[in-house]
Amino acid sequence: MKSGPSLPLTRLDNRERFRQIVLEAKAGAESGLAPMGHQVTNTRLRAHFHPAHRVEEAVDGVENLLFLRRLAERIESDWPGVLAELEAVRARLVSRAGLIANVTLDETRYGAFAPLLADFIGRLPNTRGAADSASSLESFPRNEGLAFPAQVNYVGKGGNLFDLGYRLHGSIAVINNMLRRDYLLQRIRIQGGAYGAFATFNPTSGVYTNLSYRDPNLAATLDVYDGTAAFLRGVDLSDDELTRAIIGAIGAIDAYQLPDAKGYTSLTRYLTGETDARLQQYRDEVLSTTTADFHALADVLEAMRDSGDIVVLGSREALESASLGLTITKVM
């Protein structure tokens, strides 16, 4: 690929403008703690188990909020050092070395667009920097409390099912659909008074998490999570009940997507090595789910019950009074 004239680069040395950007980002992260508390908890919890999730926590979680606060102070005390780091980050990001371009458009228009894309890429510098390892990021204690002023809690517990011997099977989508709708909804929201309860699973990393939203309880919610395996062992679904659970799961997998979403999905599948054959196998496993699959997953979730990590976002008083030995970090 031929290199054209270099692209003009944005100036990074406007200290006041950068200060405004950092303060706005910090304020946004702080204001999102309560309304997005379950996602804050989930991001932190997943970071315990997989390098990709540790990166996610570093750039979009509590760790990022703490970083922004330190950065705001450094802008005042060490602006030359901050500017040097900004330049170093740009040198790594604005480069055609290792670049992947994902384009979504009509096939008939790609011929006209391709030369423009090639010209743009050719203008990027071809610099390579030493890659940082996700393992160099901060590790976390097994059981964490994230303290901020609140009258409710966001309670999470999870683990990496692949590390516990689980092999990916599409039935987990059906099982989670039923757990959210029946078990967690009944025990945590209706009986426990929380605003919401969730079971999530990432089929790429293997990380499984249980979460609650605006939850007046803490220890009692963890007890519900720990009872999931026993609940699944007792499942005896009728054909109609199983069919409804399967329909709910397959509908989420094959949800309608607009072109931009299709393009993003294709990129993530490329990056993770997902294939059409594996996706079809996963769909077939969803459609062929049986009660025996519920019982099989119970064994894995029982192991997670005993080895899983805990993250709770809530008031310091609630975190300390739970007597769970949480390592508490002040977030607000």
Rank of each mutant, 00 (worst) to 15 (best):
Y270R: 09
G98F: 07
A88I: 09
Q20I: 02
A131E: 13
D226C: 07
D60R: 11
A219S: 15
L12I: 03
D182G: 03
V155E: 02
F198V: 08
A134E: 12
V94P: 02
R19Q: 14
V286T: 05
T209Q: 05
G325Y: 02
D132Y: 01
R278W: 00
R244P: 05
K26S: 14
R123I: 05
S139L: 10
Y195K: 06
S288N: 13
R109W: 04
D299E: 15
E241Q: 14
V207Y: 01
R233N: 11
N64H: 15
R92N: 14
L9N: 00
G28C: 00
H38S: 12
G206T: 01
Q20A: 13
H295T: 11
Q186K: 12
P8A: 08
W79P: 08
L23I: 12
M178Q: 08
S238E: 11
A303T: 08
V40T: 10
M1T: 13
A112E: 15
S212T: 15
G165E: 09
T329M: 08
S6Q: 12
R180Q: 12
E274K: 06
R96T: 03
A303W: 01
S315V: 00
L12Q: 09
A97Q: 15
A25Y: 00
T272D: 15
A131P: 09
M1R: 07
G170Q: 03
F198Y: 15
L297M: 11
G156R: 03
N64G: 05
K157S: 02
G234H: 10
L242I: 05
A27Y: 11
D78I: 13
L218R: 00
N14V: 04
E73I: 11
G192K: 06
M36Q: 14
H295L: 08
M332T: 11
F49I: 02
A245L: 02
V174L: 11
Y110T: 08
V300E: 01
Y213S: 07
D276G: 12
Y154N: 02
E57V: 01
P8S: 07
T127F: 07
V82F: 08
D293L: 03
